[in-house]
Design a protein around this nucleic acid. Structure first.
Lengths: 333, 333
DNA sequence: ACCCGCTTTGCAAGCGTGTGCAATCGTTCC
DNA sequence: GGAACGATTGCACACGCTTGCAAAGCGGGT
């Protein structure tokens, strides 16, 4: 099949007139090599186009340098940005990202973790879906690090990075209340992910505390298209809401577009809208959406930094705050 | 550092009461194993949580199953979609994607290819940037497959998948001409990538053929924000264009938003706009942008399929057509 | 009873690397 | 001059796997 011929340390050693160990040591930081040998080795390596075989190195060192990113619908703006931030961070720590797409079925997160084990990844970072406990246990028992981002479910021994969704939802409600709104709605998808549900519950709870009923609608995937359907449902009620908190920005964009083009409502004068994620489109002037920014770079930095820290049983649940970005989709501000 | 303890074939063999070769063969499709042994091995493997070590397997087989995706600004809608399609395709051929981010400096695409070599990747797929010839030669000489997507520059031995940008640009011009436009402009970034320049040249050439001068403006990166600046430049000319072909959709969205909100122009009655890429936002009702769809799935499928085909020196330049998606940003249609 | 052919199995070599251990070499100190 | 010491270096084994090769098992035909 594939005839691949890479140059090995042996050949470099022969050309440099040293032993193979010398070559190995030259490429191992902190190993004992004289300047002269190092010079001759690097020269020979350069001439031959030698590159250390990371597969073999990983085999010996029991440390592959590979980190698996497990994610579905990775072309979603928020996910894509997170993946970008993670790869950048990983590379700056001289690790490398393996990207596993779990779009297909539901057990494919488990499949992905099996891949991670097969390639002896040092760690796996899960951005979507939730694996079975049996397989995460296997990972952890094998000594693999595990990071769950916005997954919310508990996994002893893994690092969990979650947003304070409830608190953000509460702040959203207060912002809308202060803007003079009196009829509140929450626009959700049917995904029922823990973090999405936390936003819904937080918003409803805040409503109750202030003596308001919150209308909740759920439909379809967490995407632009669902926004139109939710708009249809919300704006045809006898009591039209004047404040809508959307579970994320994509949905908010779809809802705003429907509100304007389909129901001739204007934002924010007829209805105030708040989103979540602060995707790039939220700042586009057609939307100018007030929303909560996920601290993407912060999340990525924290996840990656944790990989190199010695295991501490305690304190591996990080809860970060989402920052409210004021734009024009809410009155006042 | 990291104490990783994975179960090895030896342990499975011991538990199953067979030789280590037997377990290896059990996990090698097409190898000669009796049903009875296979059963006992799989059972033991299941119980122990055994997974073949792909690092070691790659070492022996001289085939790692790894394919590197080299890409910068991967959270851009078009790039993200391509990456998603590629990972899906690769996984369906039981290969795995390594994602290398080349956001940083300019030589980093060379660095990325060195990583690909270090991990003995079977192939590299380059979505952005252009590596030095010396390093691509090293890859090819080592037997690595190389795919360049929309890179346009020639590399003997690599698969090159390009769009017919000039032809698309020509069709864009004709579409605008038929819509009754008489004052044409091309909105470009300063990136000057070959494929972007081909769109510009194709559009200008078509204009000349029909006896029209085409105004060209270039500014900044190929992004939403640049659209506003280009709108500023174009709409403050004494002779305001009534037709603008934008080098991509992001830029077109920015330009349309500026046209509407800043210059009170309406699309398509005051100005017709065509974009390129058919990103998701192009179909959002705020934009409803007529644009050219890149055959993303087709590109991904072709790239991945080529990896398994025996080397054919000829015919490794594929030129695909972009499909014109008619929406509402051009009159008539 | 013997031989032939086929399937299955174990042995052992090898893939390219890291690293402990002992040997070598050059220096310094008494 | 000799001993002690630190810096280098080479040898050889280990990592976990695949696979060619030969041996073993087995059934059928003569």
């Amino acid at each position: 099949m594939s005839r691949k011929i890479f140059v090995s340390a042996k050949e470099v050693a022969d050309r440099a007139g040293v032993s193979r160990s010398a070559v190995s040591r030259t490429f191992t930081p902190g190993a004992s090599v004289s300047d002269e040998t190092r010079r001759r080795v690097t020269e020979a390596a350069e001439a031959l186009g030698y590159h250390v075989n990371h597969l073999a190195r990983g085999l010996m060192r029991n440390e592959s340098g590979i980190v698996c990113l497990i994610v579905s619908e990775m072309d979603t703006p928020y996910r894509a940005r997170l993946v970008r931030a993670l790869t950048r961070q990983l590379q700056s720590m001289s690790k490398i990202a393996m990207l596993i797409n779990t779009d297909r079925s539901d057990d494919s997160v488990d499949q992905a973790l099996r891949q991670a084990i097969s390639y002896r990844a040092d760690a796996s970072i899960i951005l979507s879906g939730m694996p079975d406990k049996s397989i995460t246990d296997l990972c952890l028992k094998s000594g693999q690090r595990l990071v769950l981002i916005n997954r919310d479910e508990d996994r002893e021994g893994a690092l969990m990075i979650n947003l304070n969704d409830r608190e953000a939802a509460r702040r959203a409600f207060i912002a809308l209340l202060r803007a003079g709104c009196r009829s509140f709605a929450f626009a959700n998808s049917e995904a029922r992910t823990p973090s999405l549900m936390a936003r819904e519950e937080g918003f409803c709870a805040a409503g109750r505390e202030h003596g308001f009923e919150v209308t909740v609608e759920r439909f379809g995937p967490t995407a632009y298209k669902s926004g139109a359907v939710l708009a249809q449902r919300l704006f045809t009620r006898e009591k039209r809401p004047d404040a809508i908190f959307c579970v994320n920005d994509l949905l908010a964009c779809g809802l705003m577009d429907a509100a304007r083009h389909q129901f001739n409502l204007s934002v924010p004068s007829d209805v105030c809208v708040i989103g979540f994620d602060d995707i790039e489109q939220a700042s586009w002037s057609s939307y100018n959406l007030t929303t909560f920014a996920q601290p993407v770079d912060h999340i990525a930095a924290e996840a990656v930094a944790w990989l190199d820290r010695p295991t501490a049983e305690h304190e591996n649940l990080h809860r970060l705050e989402a920052e409210l970005i004021w734009r024009g989709s809410v009155r006042g501000g």
